[in-house]
């Protein structure tokens, strides 16, 4: 199926997500009729089959979602959402930070900066359940974790601090940054989950 993939472009690692989805589309044999574009307004969102919420500063992105009138439109959005880092925080129902206005699209509680400051940021080879081709080289930057999730959700990976990869229905939320490497397996998995 052709797809219109929107990347929420309010702040953060936007161009890397666009490039990663373009690469994933190419690798899954999609032609030029599938597009990846920036989403800044409710009108942009209306054109999307699926949406990606990139990493960045979650307090800033949350504020700008509200400012740009995107809060309700994203909540009502019918397609799947690929959420990384700050995106994972925003997808939760509950976040212990009054500056975040979570979207509540996944039944889970998220904790910001769960590993500490930038000096505690790390990369590692992470086993991800259900992902073929061996472990995933995961890049954690001031990363969040999920500290509680409804048992109905599908946990893909966990570290001592909490859950770092999780799915619910058409959505996937990751603590780390698959868009910073060349491995598009998680992007491809997400497209498949959404029938693309």
């Amino acid at each position: 199926m052709d797809a219109n993939i929107g990347v929420l472009a309010l702040q953060g690692n936007v161009s890397e997500h666009i490039d990663a989805f373009l690469l994933a589309l190419e690798r899954t044999g999609h032609g030029p009729s599938s597009e990846v574009f920036e989403v800044r307004s409710p009108a942009d969102l209306a054109d999307c089959t699926v949406l990606s919420i990139p990493g960045g500063e979650s307090t800033t992105i949350s504020r700008l979602i509200d400012k740009n009138g995107l809060y309700e439109p994203i909540r009502q959005f019918k397609g799947g959402i690929f959420a990384t880092c700050a995106g994972m925080v925003l997808m939760a129902t509950e976040v212990a930070d009054p500056r975040i206005h979570p979207l509540g699209l996944m039944d889970m509680v998220a904790d910001r900066n769960a590993f500490g400051r930038q000096r505690e940021s790390f990369e590692t080879d992470l086993p991800i359940s259900g992902l073929d081709g061996g472990s995933f080289h995961a890049i954690f930057i001031r990363a969040p974790v999920v500290t509680w999730a409804d048992p109905a959700l599908n946990v893909l990976a966990r570290l001592d601090q909490g859950i770092v990869a999780i799915e619910q229905g058409k959505h996937i939320a990751l603590s780390f940054h698959p868009e910073l490497g060349n491995d598009t397996r998680l992007h491809e998995r997400f497209l498949k989950m959404n029938g693309i």
């Binding site: 472009a9 309010l10 702040q11 953060g12 690692n13 936007v14 161009s15 890397e16 990493g55 960045g56 500063e57 800033t60 880092c85 700050a86 930038q118 940021s121 790390f122 990369e123 890049i139 930057i141 001031r142 940054h177 910073l180």
Partner: peptide, 13 residues
């Protein structure tokens, strides 16, 4: 990668 990745998260900010 972690250093440049951190910088990249500040984009648009």
């Amino acid at each position: 990668l972690l250093k440049r990745g951190f910088a990249s998260m500040q984009k648009g900010g």
